[in-house]
């Protein structure tokens, strides 16, 4: 393999590459979402105990999964940025945080909308719900910390530390339903065990999760391009890009 990865780790080469990738991921996300919604609403049967209310699962679980996955990926980029002093990695971490926060919020609110009719309450302070709320605070803390420090390099470092410390919360969220007595039910999908869901329900949920994943890549790339433009405004490559832009060349 002779691909020079370091070539793509500089913003000026990654910027156009990201621009080319966005439409692909956006279309994939749209197609998968349509397929997932069709399976979720038209093909998946009603549930034996929750009736139609269970269909909230098709947004709730994918959003909750993404909230955790994005945090791990974000912390990973932040760690690489911290260790290698790579500015693109730090920008990737920064680009992922708002999307992660939005998915966390979606998971919390849809969970609440599901809890009210099924459990009989909008909210309880059990380990699963509390740790997911802490995840939202971690995302918001990361965003706030980064934006409160003017020097981007120092902001990256401070953000990275917070992101890394917060990683411990992710396994706590995931295993909370195993480790403690919670109102939230256990996982329907476990490693090494048959899923506790009818096949079409499971399929719809997995396709929706894939759609959310593709959406995340698309918006994270959109955001990282904005961050590059904003942060490197005075650099030669952005100026070059702007000159082309003024001349009508699409970038």
């Amino acid at each position: 393999m002779n691909i020079n990865w370091f070539k793509y780790s500089s913003p000026q080469t990654f910027y156009p590459l990201a621009g080319k990738m966005i439409p692909w991921f956006a279309w994939l996300a749209a197609i998968l979402a349509v397929a997932g919604l069709y399976i979720g609403f038209a093909i998946a049967p009603t549930d034996f105990q929750q009736g139609e209310a269970y269909r909230i699962i098709f947004v709730h679980v994918p959003a909750a999964w993404m909230s955790m996955v994005i945090y791990i990926v974000m912390a990973g980029w932040a760690a690489i940025g911290l260790a290698l002093n790579a500015r693109l990695s730090a920008m990737m971490a920064q680009a992922l945080a708002p999307t992660g926060a939005i998915f966390t919020l979606i998971a919390l609110v849809t969970g609440s909308l599901w809890g009210k009719p099924m459990w009989g309450t909008w909210w309880v302070w059990d380990a699963r719900l509390t740790s997911e709320l802490i995840l939202l605070f971690l995302y918001l803390g990361f965003i706030a910390l980064q934006s409160s420090i003017d020097d981007p390099r120092r902001a990256d470092r401070a953000g990275a530390l917070l992101a890394l410390v917060g990683v411990v919360n992710v396994p706590i969220i995931y295993f909370s339903v195993k480790w403690w007595n919670t109102l939230h039910q256990g996982s329907s999908i476990n490693m090494g065990a048959a899923p506790k869901m009818a096949a079409t329900m499971l399929l719809g949920m997995l396709i929706m999760a894939l759609a959310f994943w593709m959406y995340t890549v698309a918006v994270a790339l959109m955001r990282v391009r904005c961050i590059m433009l904003e942060r490197e405004r005075t650099s030669d490559w952005v100026k070059e890009l702007s000159v082309q832009g003024i001349a009508g060349v699409k970038s």
Partner: peptide
């Protein structure tokens, strides 16, 4: 003072449950 339902993690159509 408050009663909440705790459902399990199984999802299936009513016929299957039956």
């Amino acid at each position: 003072s408050e009663v909440l339902a705790k459902h399990d993690e199984n999802y299936m159509p009513p016929e299957a449950a039956e």
